[in-house]
Design a protein around this nucleic acid. Structure first.
Lengths: 347, 347
DNA sequence: GTGAAAGCGCTAACAA
DNA sequence: TTGTTAGCGCTTTCAC
């Protein structure tokens, strides 16, 4: 069976204009700023657009418009959940705004990245702007080099701006607050907390949210209930185990990410504890792991796609808009607690 | 601190031409088919390109070339690992070939998709071609509708072509063969196998690969060692438990995906079995779960990015190339066994 | 309100 | 081997 598929040229502005009996420009106006056009004409044009199933050619539009950006997304060993959401969000925003995306994968087998080399490479690529994702956005040497090289950059996942770089981040603190409050509402008072790696700025934010919620509800925070992990399953298993082995163990444990929460669950399993009836366990991030394990994990999800979308729009505004602006810090705080089976009301 | 960043216009072909003292076309030729240009000229042009740090404007190139495609990636509840790799691969290939990507997320809360509606929507979008990912690519009603609607499509993850649609898939069979062989080389003969959902074409392929390897090594396959799962952690835990509770249990268990393998590991843990010394457990897919759990899972990884790249290139060729061609079936068989801690030589 | 002209940065087709 | 012309599909600018 031989087939030869041919790209069927789709309708152009000109064709729509001819069919509607107006000029090319009028159609363009209807599509962009319709307020300048008479209602009658709009109707005619829209009929023609509909009839021809016209779709604007983004390439031509961006080229003629002269303000299409080439934006790089720079990442380093992200989790696939994070990466896919970033990509989906960034692509969606770029499509809307007529920009192009270029991926720059700095992932490696464990070695550190060289800010000098990376910056040089990025510079040679002729990008108009960058999205720097965590953990890179926390690398101040890299950020400084990038600044020196004059590439407009958005620091994703950070809250403090640096130089004239804006940031877009998640409100980890209020998310942790909400999750803690949820546990408190379930009747828990003895709540253990496992902190994540201290290098990550958001680790502290999550801990703060937990503490604030406890204080807000006038619940005493037992120091022995706060453990230091490093975001790995193993550290969750170890630290969770220590909490569970306490003479008066907590009735609920809040781990700073899902991997550690899964570790705590494993620790509870190995002690033959019933989850959630003997101990409630909750995580953070809503990774796939959380619904893969048993019992499925109650956790809190970040709107990563949204963060990416916002970052792209911010870059767009910063570069293309005339109004002068200061470096801004956008904090997205759509908190969504995903209730699954690992947490329950205290008995 | 007020800043107003401005997009700095990058060099154009014309500027390079002027600097090199040649015509615009010569520069274009150096960039595209350099064989038509004198070596001397090439050198001059390259110097100018270098000096101006010239980067071609993809938009203009695609627009002028007249063969830029708008390609849709259609997906339905993919795992994030799968999605991110598909996106990375597709974006990379599209950038090279000058095509644009549009995402079409059909994910939902559980209901079935309506092929009629989906096809209609896709048709209205004016796409030049589609990548249909699993499980959608196995939906024959959808595939048929898509065919009727005349949108060139690549079926990702299928091996049998349908209508004139080409397919690109992973060689699950040889991967399962390789993994089984690996277990055999470790000294295992009593190997349990957990099959995945029968609706998925690749479930059968993985099982076949397992059986073939066993036969190839003249090892008797005990029917009681083959269990039916459904790709969930829970089914792995249950079926794995049954295998482990057998009077003479297998010394190794091969689950058709990582989630089930993790379930088997949980089952083994709850029976106080030492992994890998009492029982080896391996998975399939190399999802993040596999390195998150303990012990880390030995598994096999699919080159999903590559599959996406190949799919885009195939679509490109099918639509843009003059030579007539039949629907083809590309099978990528780069098998990579990831050796971690969950499998060991028999004692 | 609407239209005509010019041009975004590049390549295709032809000419020299 | 190199240059000239036209034009991809759209927006911008300026004219009416």
């Amino acid at each position: 069976m031989e087939t030869k598929i041919l790209k069927k040229r789709s309708a152009t502005l000109k064709e729509v204009a001819e069919r509607a009996g107006v000029s090319l420009m009028t159609v363009s106006r209807v599509l962009n700023n319709r307020d300048l056009v008479k209602q009658d004409t709009i109707t005619k044009v829209e009929a023609a657009v509909e009839a021809l199933n016209y779709r604007p050619n983004i390439l031509a539009r961006s080229l003629a418009g002269g303000n299409s950006l080439v934006i790089g997304i720079v990442y380093h060993n992200p989790s696939s959940g994070y990466l896919s959401e970033i990509l989906v969000g960034a692509m969606t925003a770029c499509r809307e705004l007529g920009h192009q995306l270029v991926l720059e994968d700095l992932s490696d087998g464990g070695g550190d990245i060289d800010p000098e080399v990376v910056t040089h490479r990025l510079q040679k690529m002729g990008l108009d702007g960058l999205l720097l994702t965590p953990p890179l956005s926390a690398n101040s040497v890299l950020v400084q080099k990038l600044h020196d090289s004059n590439i407009p950059t958005i620091l994703v996942g950070r809250q403090k701006t640096q130089y004239d770089f804006s940031t877009v981040s998640f409100n980890d603190q209020s998310a942790a607050f909400a999750m803690t409050q949820y546990l408190i509402e379930l009747g828990h008072k003895d709540i253990g907390f496992i902190v994540g790696s201290i290098e990550q700025p958001f680790s502290g934010r999550r801990k703060d949210g937990f503490l604030q919620a406890m204080h807000h509800h006038n619940i005493y925070v037992n120091d022995a209930f706060i453990k230091q992990g490093d975001y790995t399953f193993k550290s969750g298993m170890e630290q969770g185990g220590e909490l569970l082995d306490l003479e008066n163990p907590p009735t609920a444990i809040f781990a700073s990410n899902d991997d550690m929460a899964a570790g705590v669950i494993a620790a509870a399993h190995s002690r033959n504890l019933d989850i959630p009836n003997s101990v409630s366990i909750v995580g953070f991030d809503d990774t796939e792991l959380s619904s893969a394990i048993w019992p499925a994990l109650t956790t809190v999800r970040q709107p990563i796609s949204n963060i990416a979308k916002n970052s792209i729009k911010l870059l767009h505004d910063n570069i293309l808009t005339d109004i002068p602006k200061a470096a801004s810090s956008t904090i997205i705080d759509t908190v969504e607690i995903i209730r699954r089976e690992s947490a329950a009301a205290i008995k």
